[in-house]
């Protein structure tokens, strides 16, 4: 099987992650051909998931299709890279019915467009107008700080590090004061 895939698609060699999981990275235009070949010839009937990983440094999304054989013994990760700006890849809903909900999730989280999927409406976010949240350039902490307000916390709203230093200095001062008071007491006792 590996040989036919390697010479048909001229990709990097197939990586065997575990005895039940293989992974291959192919060009963007060859991916559906590979998926259908796996489906017909090697009985990879089920599409388990479509995932996407945002490699912002290398300016691309890594879309992975995970297929499993009908006896569920073998899984295959077929990965491809698509550009980050106006990312687009054809939809698989014509063959796999469940692809609709997976693509809908990725469309909402990454802003990837799946032509052919009629139901790319919002899934988890309601009236979300900002950048799709899972893209790396969206910083959630900064979004929270300028949109929401935290509880003011206690009156002092003290910073932990400064507080630790203050307490340590306080303890040292008390120890010194106690030592000084003991010396004065011993002088007084020596005195009288």
């Amino acid at each position: 099987m590996f040989a036919t895939i390697k010479n048909r698609f001229a990709t990097t060699d197939i990586e065997v992650k575990r005895e039940d999981l293989y992974k291959v990275v192919v060009q963007r235009d060859a991916i559906f051909e590979l998926i259908f070949m796996l489906r017909e010839q090697y009985d990879y009937q089920t599409l388990n998931a479509i995932t996407c990983c945002d490699w912002i440094e290398e300016e691309h999304f890594a879309i992975t299709y995970i297929l499993t054989t009908s006896d569920r013994k073998q899984s295959f990760m077929v990965q491809t890279m698509i550009g980050r700006e106006d990312a687009q890849i054809d939809s698989l809903t014509h063959t796999f019915e469940q692809a609709e909900i997976m693509e809908r999730d990725l469309h909402e989280m990454y802003g990837i467009d799946f032509p052919g999927n009629q139901n790319l409406v919002e899934l988890s976010l309601e009236n979300w107008v900002h950048t799709p949240p899972l893209r790396r350039e969206f910083d959630t902490l900064e979004f929270v700080n300028n949109n929401l307000s935290f509880r003011e916390g206690r009156d002092g709203n003290m910073d932990v590090k400064k507080e630790m230093k203050r307490l340590r200095a306080l303890k040292k001062a008390q120890k010194a004061a106690a030592k000084k008071a003991k010396e004065e007491a011993s002088e007084v006792s020596d005195g009288n």
């Binding site: 009937q45 089920t46 599409l47 388990n48 499993t68 009908s70 796999f96 019915e97 469940q98």
Partner: peptide, 8 residues
């Protein structure tokens, strides 16, 4: 059963 296999 067929639907189960295909739709995952």
């Amino acid at each position: 059963p067929e639907e189960c296999i295909k739709n995952g």
